[in-house]
Design a protein around this nucleic acid. Structure first.
Lengths: 244, 244
DNA sequence: GCGAGTATACTTGTATACAAGTATTATAGT
DNA sequence: ACTATAATACTTGTATACAAGTATACTCGC
């Protein structure tokens, strides 16, 4: 049932040390964000357990996780899928803008050389990922880039917010990258340029550049949002045609 | 074992519709924040299950919740208590400052009359709570005040952040209020004045007043932090003496 | 044909059972 | 006395079992 038409969506190697529950959460998350599971669908623990060939324990765990991420709503009977509309994606980026701005203000008060060094390393990794056309790796490094910045100030509650938004963000970026990677090289170089700008802002502690970079980043995303949105629409149309 | 010296810390009536897992989470949260469970302690699912006379299922659920709130760290063997130091409390208020500022910027773009009306109602409830010296009710309404503001902009990810920080904040405020309520009436009137200021800022859409109010609020908290901190120290000293 | 009431099937929440793995402790050998 | 190895006791993760509650559907009465 699960493997009828699609392979697993989430990269296996990222799940090496994950428990069954985490694996299910990742898989469900991808299926929800990609639109394979439509908004409004009601998920039942029993059915999911049967589909994934596991017991209800890990399923319950996964549903709790997804509920925290606002992808589903746990109700009396069943978990209804909230999904990710354009609105939610904008809201996630609101949050990222908010915390990255906060982090920047903290960051510039201290020595930033070690962070800059780490970020530069990640940037080079991203370059390699482009070279070998590895969309997943590129997405991973992209997320890691921002995570590195955010964790650098050692603020447990900012980190908490990051931890809660990261999975959705990561999945979203992953899907976007897979769709774009082979077509739009312009986009990729723009993303790279923007990340360089980001590093510049941090190393020079220049607020202006920072804001410029953040907005640029947001614009980048906006395009991806539209595309993902369109692809979801297409998927759902395709499904409707199947039903006929 | 559990009821040897202390009654339950969390108000029973707030748990009317809660599951066992939620109840355990609330109780453990209060015990951690109050310092009854010291930082660094390792909690075992089995022992907790035995203490609370429930099975491991709800305990696991509770530990996941507390882990999300950054009160414990789930490790290979056991969950180690992180606790709430002065640093963490400041960090929570960083986050609240961050999101309430964001919310204000959104709020002033729309009609605020209905929110102001709700807030005014809550303020009157707080006044009644003072009149009847009901610290718990006062704390509840205080938290509800801020929740009302935050939820008013209907931003799912800001709401998510609130949901994740609320329980700790609520417990913390609850404990603070219980300690202060009967001693410092000055504090209470200051808090009330500040909430009025908050409402003024929203209804007049005045950014200056808003910032003033937020900072005032933070100063209020700072005092409470010191006191709670001291009380934790006292508790831990008392425990050491018991051991002798 | 239609409405009320009951029965059934499915829901979650909690308890228990089991398996795999890890730390600690005790014992045996040097 | 000390080290190494083995055994034991305790850890989590997953599966299964059971109970209480809810929605649906069917049947019976009108």
């Amino acid at each position: 049932m699960l493997n009828d038409s699609n392979d697993f969506l989430y990269p296996d190697k990222w799940l090496s040390k994950a428990s069954t529950g985490e694996r299910v959460a990742c898989e469900l998350r991808m299926r929800i964000i990609s639109g394979l599971i439509e908004s409004g669908t009601t998920l039942s623990e029993n059915k999911l357990a049967a589909e994934y060939h596991v017991s209800r324990s890990p399923i319950r765990e996964a549903l709790k996780v997804l509920s925290n991420e606002n992808l589903i709503r746990l109700e009396r009977m069943g978990a209804v899928v909230v999904g990710l509309t354009e609105k939610e994606i904008e809201e996630i980026y609101d949050v990222r803008l908010l915390i990255e701005t906060f982090v920047f203000e903290r960051l510039v008060k201290n020595d930033t050389t070690s962070v800059v060094r780490e970020l530069t390393k990640i940037l080079e990794m991203m370059q390699i990922a482009i070279k070998y056309k590895d969309a997943d790796e590129f997405a991973l490094q992209d997320v890691l880039f921002h995570e590195t910045i955010i964790r650098s100030i050692d603020h447990s509650y900012i980190t908490m917010i990051w931890n809660n938004t990261k999975p959705v963000m990561e999945s979203f970026i992953l899907l976007s990258m897979r769709m774009h990677f082979n077509e739009k090289y312009d986009d990729l170089s723009r993303i790279m340029k923007n990340h360089e700008l980001y590093i510049d802002a941090i190393s020079s502690k220049n607020r202006e550049i920072m804001i410029q970079s953040l907005h640029q980043n947001f614009d980048d995303v906006q395009g991806k949002v539209d595309d993902l949105w369109m692809s979801q629409q297409m998927l759902s149309k395709a499904r409707e045609q199947e039903k006929e």
